[in-house]
């Protein structure tokens, strides 16, 4: 987008939307939208408070653990599926089912099986992230250039050597792509878990602020959460671009 010959940065229209928000808020068109300036002021006052920090900590812990387990289980499973035809045919239908299944419906099961606490939230998070990680790791392994595999064999690589020196690296761009999407899904999963399972972390703050009609507080926390999610997503996209150079020449 160019204006008067100057190229505007990609996300700069958000400033415009922010201004619109401010105008709508100042005009007091609706009780639910306080002016952006008020939201930002509130944001500054609550960001250091213990309740905010503990919500952030709880959410980050559940999110971190969920992502950790989904990568730990997902990547090796995907690689094995890519290497073994039998395993692939047995598991792939279920991976595809759970990839697109309404996972929120499974949350009540987790609640009765694992209780109403952190454990269920972590599992929910992992459940949102893991399927796409498996699927991408599988794709990565399956689309390794045949001649790269033949090259390793013709120079006498053992299966273990071929795995660690060739397959893993050749599949890395796809694996990272899967992890990036998985993490974005995990962010959604952790919030859904907090809203459904137990009112904890940010979920608790949202409940508290909305039942007490503290709109500025509500939007402030939402702003922080969206900004965090967006930063995580952009950071991972940046990492992925760093290995993209070799995805093109394989």
């Amino acid at each position: 987008m160019k204006l008067f010959g100057i190229t505007l940065p990609a996300m700069s229209s958000l400033i415009l939307w922010g201004l619109l928000w401010e105008v709508v808020g100042q005009a007091e068109l609706t009780f639910f939208v306080p002016p952006l300036s008020e939201v930002v002021r509130t944001l500054i006052t609550i960001i250091g408070t213990p309740s905010f920090l503990s919500a952030l900590g709880e959410t980050a812990y559940a999110f971190g653990m969920g992502v950790f387990f989904s990568i730990l289980i997902g990547v090796p499973t995907g690689i094995l599926m890519g290497r073994s035809r039998l395993l692939d045919e047995l598991l792939l239908p279920w991976v595809n089912v759970f990839l697109s299944a309404p996972l929120t419906a499974l949350v009540p099961v987790l609640m009765v099986l694992f209780g109403f606490g952190m454990k269920s939230i972590i599992i929910t998070t992992a459940l949102f992230a893991i399927w796409i990680i498996i699927l991408n790791a599988r794709t990565g392994v399956r689309q390794i250039n045949r001649s790269l595999v033949e090259m390793a064999r013709s120079f006498g690589a053992s299966p273990v050597e071929a795995f660690f020196k060739v397959y893993l690296w050749a599949a890395l761009p796809e694996i990272l792509g899967g992890v990036r999407i998985g993490i974005i899904r995990a962010v959604k999963g952790v919030i859904i878990g907090q809203l459904l399972i137990s009112i904890a972390g940010f979920g608790a703050l949202f409940e508290l602020y909305s039942t007490n009609f503290m709109m500025a507080h509500f939007w402030a926390v939402l702003l922080v959460l969206f900004a965090l999610a967006f930063s995580i997503s952009e950071f991972l996209a940046y990492l992925e671009r760093k290995v993209a150079y070799y995805a093109a020449v394989r």
Partner: peptide, 24 residues
């Protein structure tokens, strides 16, 4: 073997690629 599509490791330098047969 010399491959039609070169079969180079995209993540490795020229030096490591050339030495890869010996590395194995």
């Amino acid at each position: 073997f010399v491959f039609q599509d070169f079969a180079l490791l995209p993540w490795a330098t020229v030096l490591r690629n050339v030495a890869f047969g010996l590395e194995l």
